[in-house]
Design a protein around this nucleic acid. Structure first.
Lengths: 339, 339
DNA sequence: TTGTAAGCGTTATCAG
DNA sequence: CTGATAACGCTTACAA
């Protein structure tokens, strides 16, 4: 097992000092072409790669950004993260992603792992987390940008959506179609402000309308097609049955759609279904989902820009950017069925 | 901007040496409870996190595994990677994922980034890549495990499927239903052995059947729903039209299904469609997709085990593990339509 | 333009 | 059981 070549090996082979090699690699113009060629040749010949650990320790910047997302398993974050990564790459940064699998406590672990590895900045999803984590980040002075959520009242750099308002708008569309018995399949709200806000957006709108809360049927369930199917089955057993089921995201809605089909209910004739996120899935299922469109790629790109700004000497105080969402009407939402 | 606390700060605060602090953190049993308590208290009080760079440099192991996948944007790899990560976590390793977005050259970049950061081992998708990259990995003696593919004739540690055989089996099912005019929507085969093998699996089977190659209609296209829709439109304009369209994966198939619906063709009455991968999508679309089931989670889990074994002093020579695939018949495949 | 040498924060080896 | 101290590989003043 030959040991991996170091700066020193390159220097020796090229007949120069390690300082010169380092300069060739980092600031090539501060080195005369002739020696640079020698050095580059040695680098090639040896197959040298800088040791990042050492570099992190000696320099300050790593040009690495970390992102911690709840899951890679469904496409909720995929598109935004992809755009985030592309923009970072364009700006010379490397993205490292890790996921918590919605495991409580996992996020702190990952934050420490990434910070310890010298991440210059972090992308986190949503606001809800142990205050100690925020304290830790502040202390380490590692900038963190919150994405996929937006709460102007919280003084943190963030870019995202007003989940409450967006869901409220969708709910108004639902009410306008005459629905009064509303089923809800929500994600688990504990530690998930996006899920919580969406749920609250429905409740507040329904109550503002003066409806009887007893006419709402809520189920919280972990994200997943299967879990949503179970939830849908339960909701459809209520009597009288809800005329619509509003879901916390498109994945849950896809599950609800599937369960409806298996139960022999047609959508939207027998029951309507709505989603949230407008991931690709929403247009693929039958019937296509009425949902809330989120500008995933725009958010990813802007998140990259904002985080880099923060990293490269935040002008100052945190700012929260709000992106617009659009209620997107497709076939899965219909008028309330005649009894 | 308070500077982040180091081992030294902790040592000073606890009134012990840095060596003792280090021991408390890494081998707590080699330190008497009393001093350990003092140290732990200081660690808490200061909010100390070890600097990974320094640790990498001083120790050899990092307990970090890197995975480089073509894309996070669709679910092809999501499930397997999730299982991979879960198993790694269970074994005390951290997973860092990065994606190439099918960008040529990006993989090398990412490999270097991960290796430079001290990754103990790497998970790579498929065999096809610049030999120089393999050479680099060997030289750095960083073990790499190839996943999602299996070629016994290539002497590399790998875990995956025989894409050729699996697609061949599906093709036999197709032929058995009387289809003779076969359309194919394949992923780009350049640098993607999985896509290439699947395509070849179809061709070889069709030709073995003694069919006229002129009856096959092949289109290669980048992965994506939209691109698949375009391809489907093109295929459906041929006269006579193919009676079935076999797709290189489920995402492409979902696009084909969608295009068919928009063109007013019903599946499988007017045209059949098949996929490959059996991701969640396959059961959600209407009609449900006939596809090749891959044991995603099993592969992820076993990949983790295998890679850790490699990292922790590979017993020796590389081994290739083949996992079984299952042709899964659902509604999207029907008999050849009567003309 | 290039070389010298002092860190950077840990771990590991040796003594005590 | 604990403390010095020498690496680890690289960057960066400071000198030459």
């Amino acid at each position: 097992m030959r040991t991996t070549p170091t700066l020193d090996d390159v220097a020796r082979k090229a007949g120069v000092s390690t300082a010169t090699v380092s300069r060739c690699l980092n600031t090539p113009d501060r080195v005369v072409k002739d020696t640079r060629d020698k050095v580059m040749y040695a680098v090639e010949a040896l197959g040298y790669t800088p040791n990042f650990g050492a570099r992190v320790m000696a320099a300050k910047r790593t040009f690495t950004i970390g992102a911690i997302i709840p899951t890679m398993e469904n496409a909720i974050f995929a598109r935004g993260i992809q755009a985030f990564q592309e923009e970072l790459h364009r700006r010379g940064y490397t993205l490292l992603v890790s996921s918590t699998g919605y495991r409580p406590g996992a996020e702190e672990e990952q934050v420490r792992a990434l910070v310890g590895r010298g991440a210059d900045g972090l992308l986190l999803i949503g606001y809800d987390r142990d205050p100690a984590l925020y304290q830790y980040l502040d202390r380490q002075s590692v900038p963190a940008l919150i994405a996929w959520a937006h709460k102007p009242q919280i003084d943190r750099p963030a870019i995202g959506f007003d989940n409450h308002a967006a869901m409220a708008e969708l709910t108004r569309e639902v009410l306008a179609r005459g629905h009064r018995r509303i089923g809800v399949i929500s994600g688990m709200v504990e530690g998930n402000d996006r899920a919580a806000d969406r749920l609250k957006g429905i409740r507040d709108t329904v109550h503002a309308q003066g409806l009887d809360p007893a006419d709402m049927f809520e189920i919280q369930t972990p994200y997943g097609i299967e879990t949503a199917e179970r939830a849908m089955e339960t909701l459809m057993q209520a009597a009288p049955r809800p005329t619509i089921v509003m879901c916390g995201n498109d994945v849950l809605a896809a599950g609800a759609l599937r369960a409806a089909r298996l139960m022999g209910l047609s959508v939207p004739q027998d029951v309507s279904v709505t989603g949230f996120d407008d991931i690709e899935l929403a247009r693929i299922v039958t019937p296509a989902l009425t949902t809330v469109h989120l500008p995933h790629r725009e958010m990813g790109t802007k998140a990259a820009t904002a985080l880099i700004a923060l990293v490269e000497g935040a002008p100052e105080g945190p700012a929260a950017v709000k992106l617009d969402t659009v209620v997107t009407l497709r076939d899965s939402l219909g008028p309330v069925p005649a009894d």
